[in-house]
Amino acid sequence: MILYASPMGGVIYEYVIAVLDQTLPSSINHGDTIPFSKQTAKLLDMAAIQLICRGKTECLYHTWTFPRKGAFANLKRGERQKVVDLLERLEVPLESLPEPFTNNPGLTQSMKNTLTQLTLLGYYSEWTGYGSTRLKGPDVRRIEFFPMGWLQTNYPGPAFGYRNLRGFLLGDPYKGGGHDV
């Protein structure tokens, strides 16, 4: 019986967080005590304040103005995308970014692609199919469901093969298969 995953679009952030937290070795991430995902969230919040304050001579917002959700999460989708673009264009004070982004333009700029790529890979790969094991280590996870992104794309899943051979444009180069003619 094939079980289909319940809609898990809402949990892709778990994938993004889990992968981010494994991205940097602790020597660079200043100890395991500050996970990279937390620092990324701080980075987004700082850039959000930057966007909100843009063009204003006086701006009283701080990262702590938004106690429950961060500044970033309070923005509308279009604005959130603008925030990520600010990072990409490095229109943020590099020296006051949280570690490990402090004075690290490459890493800061890469975050837009990283966040997008992880979201897409989480959604369209087998990850949602891991169901209740999805947050376990890669060697422990088991496929429980047909992944959500494969339903959307109508991808049949891994295969032993396909009988869709249509022929050969050129034969074997070593059996007079038509090279160098």
Binding site: N113, T116, Q117, T119, L120, L121, Y123, Y124, S125, E126, G149, W150, T153, Y155, P158
Partner: peptide, 12 residues
């Protein structure tokens, strides 16, 4: 496969 397609075609 779809995950690599999405990220290479539309994600970077």
């Amino acid at each position: 496969s779809p995950g690599l397609t999405a990220s290479l075609s539309y994600g970077i």
